[in-house]
Amino acid sequence: MYTQLVQPDESSAGDAGPEASVFEDKIDRAVTIEPTDWMPEAYRKTLLRQISQHAHSEIVGMLPEANWLTRAPSLERKLILLAKVQDEGGHGLYLYSAAETLGTSRDDMIDALLEKRAKYSSIFNYPTLTWADVGAIGWLVDGAAIINQIPLTQCSYGPYARAMVRICKEESFHQRQGYDVMVTLARGTPEQHAMAQDALDRWWWPSVMMFGPPDAESAHNEQSMRWKIKLFSNDALRQKFVDQTIPQADALGLTIPDPDLRWNEATQHYDFGTPDWSEFYEVIRGNGPCNRERLGARRAAHEDGAWVREAALAYERKVRERATA
């Protein structure tokens, strides 16, 4: 889902030197590629784009949930949500750190994000209108993230795979806390139950679309799959998400807003309706409900913080100069 529109780089399709065969041999033997290893330019570029977009998704993803920190309806929920949002920031940081090993800098990546040259997951461009949205995000969005992240722990690029292992360990409570919020609301007063259903109604399709366009319409992914950058197809992951989530919704007594949803006895999977892909493309293009706000917030923080970052560096310079004086 972090590769929703990552076009795999084809620039070094002609690589055939001795280093290339060492590289391919490592891939075949599942030996991780590390930062100082030779790698095809296409591999480096594709990974860099994917990892940095994954990182951007984490830090932009903090915003929709941070929106409810001040209003969380119990002290315990406030603390749990704060810990979750902090984790997401941490995940962004691990990923920026992995991306920097590929020859970019945090600053370049942030510039690319703020100048809209880099993308982030579509899902974070939707508003969190009620407290139930916080539950829905944890349940659906983190649920989808886990499906995507576990295979990535097998990614061929060492720093990315290791970051994913660390992230998966911390992710364990994220989905649970979201589902727990939904359970409490679904079993609560009629008003709370309605709040939960309303959140599901608004977050279901965006969550389904998180896995990216249908395979038939997606960028040519064979190279990425060979290199273990992208391990499963969009449709395969999407199907897995739907199959695992429907019973969870049933347990909540909530209705998935898809009239075409039905269990297929023959395939042993759920058949489901077609998302509105035009909405998806509009959101990716920057015209979702919150795109401008999300980036605006990150841009303001970055610009407002310039004097702080400068001051810290100035202090360090002064201390160093005094020490050598």
């Binding site: 903090m62 941070a66 810990a83 902090q86 940081l93 923080a301 407002d304 913080g305 702080v308």
Partner: peptide, 25 residues
Amino acid sequence: VVLIGHAPILEEELGMANVALDLLG
């Protein structure tokens, strides 16, 4: 908690979140 998403650098958001978690705890 209002500062989450608005700090001068990502590392500071995490540091500040830790302080807030402690105080609320």
